[in-house]
Structures are given as structure tokens and as C-alpha cells.
Amino acid sequence: MQPTARTLIDRIADALDETVLPSLSQDKWSASTVRSAVTLLRHLAKRVELEAAIIAADTADAHTVLTGLLPRIRPGEDAELKAKIAAILADPAPPSFDTPALDAQNTRYQAVFEQLLRDQYDGGWTNEQAQPVRGAIRAYLKRRLARERDMYMPEFSGPPF
């Protein structure tokens, strides 16, 4: 359908930026609100198109990484973590159009990565045990940041308020 959601949001942001904002130069509060609205709209214009695909790709990547790391998780000391990883790996993927469900599942993966990092730093892992895990997680996190980068930059790089 034309105009697309992205076009509509972009045009609303253009109108606020070009028509409303210049008239608010004497009102810091209103100008700040409009500037923030424009920033959020620019982000949303990208997000409506990119978010579902980015999350799905990221979760697939996370799934592959955790599948590879699962055998390295110590069965005794880290049994709870191992069970948590096995459970999330068995979690079926939500439909590709269901962005909230995709996001919720991806958030669960991120929580597991957090716990895995804490366990291998604080849980008495030897360097030999920790290094490959840490390396795989760092590599994944860098891919994740690269994947989502366009949703946030340069929109949020400007004045914050």
C-alpha cells in the first residue's frame, strides 16, 4: 500500500522538522519535545521495516552460537544454566510477522547470554574453559551490534533533548 508506513512516518517527521520546529526557537521546552518526536519518528520509520527481520536473524544467530556452546557448559557446577540453554534452544520460533513474540524470545536469549557471561567470569571457570566461550559470545555480540546499528544511527546521535 502506498504510501508505505515508512514514507508516512518520514513525512510526518519532515513536517515537524521543517515547519513546526523553526517556529519554536524561543520556546526551549516545546522545541525539545518536537526535536525528540522527530528523532523517535526517524527511528520508527526504519524500525517498522527492519525490526522483525533483524530480530529473527539475530535469534537464529544466537541459537547457532548457544548450540555450539552447550557441550562446553559444565554439567555439574552449571547444571541450571545448561538446562536453561537447552530449554531456550527447544523453544519454537514465533511466526515471522509476530514482532512482539520475536522480541520476547530474543530477550530470553539475551538473558541467557548475560548469565553465561557472569557464570564464566564469576563461577570459577578456568581460562581454558572460559576463553572459547567468551570468544564466541564476543563475536556474536559484535554481529548483533552490526545487525541492529542502522535502526539507531544516526538518528540517536544528535542532541538528546
Binding site: T33, S36, T39, L40, H43, L141, L145, Y152, E155, F156
Partner: peptide
């Protein structure tokens, strides 16, 4: 509902997360 709470709490936090992610190496 102050909008800068979202530009800061979501957007700037993401920017800083990306910066910290670049710095860990």
C-alpha cells in the same frame, strides 16, 4: 510521557551500548 525520556532511555543507551561494545577489544 516526556519524549526525551525515550530518546535518552532507548536511543542514547543504544549509542552507548554500541560504543562500549566497540571498546571491549
Amino acid at each position: 510521557g516526556r519524549l526525551p525520556r525515550a530518546t535518552l532511555g532507548l536511543g542514547k543507551v543504544k549509542i552507548y551500548e554500541h560504543m562500549l561494545g566497540a571498546m571491549i577489544d
